[in-house]
């Protein structure tokens, strides 16, 4: 049986997937943006400003989702010592950090006109900021250690320790008094958001997920080439892609 976990088989397989997933991401995001910016009505309280939600909320979900993927890959690399898991964890970090940054900046741009402040040290905002620091810490560890296996191990340990922050982010709005409002969509039953606004929100969320998969595969592919550069199959790939 062909094992897709072997870098040699993963490389061409991922290469075939990327254009399709990338195309699906572009289409989904374009449709989501169209609905979110031109079709969805203004909010009864927040007017047009609530449209920031269509990027803010999906990227906040992604910031946590990517972290969980990164930590799980880190755990897998610690347990089974699979190279592919190490590469996946390291490819996740910059993308997750980007989504976290987008979440913080768009949240700030939404907070200023609505709440009256760019930033508040409430539990939700602070724990999301800590998430950004965790990503930066993981990236710094990966960049600073020469041996890729040792770098992956150190980064995986930090990523796993940081996992405690994920439930803190999610439940912060329920556990403590926060300026940030609680979740609209995660409630069981009816989400407290009108269907005309929910549609673009979910489309953007799916689009971001597809974008993440495509970009993580691109990053994984060149990292695999780098790490396997002394092998015969990489020499063949280099030869064939001239």
């Amino acid at each position: 049986m062909l094992s897709y976990a072997a870098p040699k088989n993963f490389y061409p397989f991922a290469g075939k997937l990327i254009p399709w997933i990338g195309f699906a991401a572009v289409v989904t995001l374009a449709f989501g943006l169209y609905l979110g910016l031109f079709v969805a009505p203004a909010d009864y309280q927040q007017g047009q400003s609530y449209r920031i939600m269509f990027i803010h909320v999906p990227s906040a979900w992604m910031s946590m989702f990517v972290y969980v993927v990164m930590a799980a890959a880190g755990a897998a690399s610690l347990v089974w010592k699979t190279k592919l898991a190490e590469v996946l964890a390291s490819a996740c970090a910059p993308i997750g950090a980007s989504f976290t940054l987008i979440t913080l900046v768009t949240g700030s741009l939404w907070g200023k006109p609505m709440w009256g402040t760019w930033w508040a040290w409430d539990a939700r905002l602070t724990s999301e900021l800590i998430l950004l620091f965790l990503y930066i810490g993981v990236m710094a560890l990966q960049a600073s250690i020469d041996d890729p296996r040792r770098a992956a191990r150190a980064a995986a340990v930090l990523a796993l320790v940081g996992v405690v922050n994920i439930p803190v982010i999610h439940f912060s709005v329920e556990w403590w008094n926060t300026l940030h409002q609680p979740a609209s969509v995660s409630k069981l039953g009816m989400p407290s958001i009108h269907p005309s606004m929910l549609a673009p929100l979910l489309l953007m969320a799916v689009g971001f997920k597809l974008y993440f998969v495509a970009m993580v595969l691109v990053r994984m592919r060149y990292q695999i080439l780098e790490r396997e550069r002394h092998t015969q199959w990489v020499a063949q790939v280099v030869e064939s892609e001239k």
């Binding site: 910059p94 768009t106 939404w110």
Partner: peptide, 22 residues
Amino acid sequence: MGGYGLYVWSAYGFATLILVLN
């Protein structure tokens, strides 16, 4: 954008910039 254009477009612009850079 009902007076919120600057905030809304800055948010979309920033997100686009980061995602394209990525």
